[in-house]
Design a protein around this nucleic acid. Structure first.
Lengths: 146, 146
DNA sequence: TCAAATTCGATTGTGTGCAATTTAATCTTG
DNA sequence: CAAGATTAAATTGCACACAATCGAATTTGA
């Protein structure tokens, strides 16, 4: 077969594609669960950062989430609208915007408590597989030539 | 610590997040490589399907790519504009739209040949790790309660 | 056979992601 | 100390994703 030449271009031989598909699939599974607490996936991971930190700059939040201000600004404005966070400039450095959780935002955490378990039960992986997966993904994220 | 209760809500304990981050990271690495042949990532995986199938309906393409017509329609129109594909209704069933690669589209395949290798070298995984990763991801995609 | 249900793709609306640019504030250096 | 460099966030523009809806074509079933 002359086609050997093109083997590498087959969808099934690309590692990128299952990664891309799996990522979307997981986000899809979150949707019905997050709908119940009125968050999108991006809003959810944003709130997770705030539940851990209570108060953080947009820049630091972006480093944790691998998102830039172009993505975060509208998300944060939406979360502010919903009353879950406050946005205010740092008094020491006016360039910096500090995001803080409100009481409502902290209350939401209790409602979110059951989310991880609900997602976990839609994922048919053993603990070892999950750990292995996370390890490999972390290697990918950190990269080598980037 | 009272906080034990919220352990599961920490970003670092969620499997979804490295998956989401890694997926975006890989797509990011494709960008400079795909820029050279004038394709976006979505256009690239769409063309990969066509390079394998030459002619396929939007529905079947959607099944392979896990994308619906809401996403595919604009992507396919763009690829048609660029001259890489043709879109025409099935004569037997007018509901169905058949997508076909043009000669230009097939010519593009030769230019795309070096893409997989260029991406591979930015990924610091052993062959075994890559295989393991693909296997686990496939399990995730297929799911259990979906 | 023909009305109802289904199927397919297109359209609309919302919400990301990200590159590039802009604006304002702060820092650095001569 | 002031001009230029740097930094942080916001804005703009483009390209997805996907849910929901629509309209046309086809299939089904009483």
């Amino acid at each position: 077969m002359m086609e050997k030449k093109y083997e590498a271009l087959k969808l099934s031989n690309q590692m990128c594609f299952p990664l891309y598909a799996a990522s979307k699939e997981i986000v899809r599974r979150y949707k019905p669960v997050l709908d119940e607490i009125g968050l999108t996936y991006t809003q959810y991971i944003t709130m997770m950062v705030l539940w851990e930190h209570e108060s953080i700059s947009v820049k630091d939040m972006g480093s944790l989430l691998y998102l830039d201000s172009g993505t975060l600004t509208p998300v944060l404005k939406k979360l502010e609208q919903k009353g879950f966070i406050k946005r205010q400039r740092d008094t020491g450095d006016e360039r910096v915007l500090i995001v803080t959780v409100t009481d409502e935002g902290m209350a939401l955490r209790d409602k979110a408590l059951e989310v991880p378990a609900k997602i976990a039960c839609t994922v048919d992986l053993s603990v070892e597989e999950a750990k292995l997966l996370c390890g490999i993904l972390q290697k990918l994220i950190n990269g080598c030539c980037s």
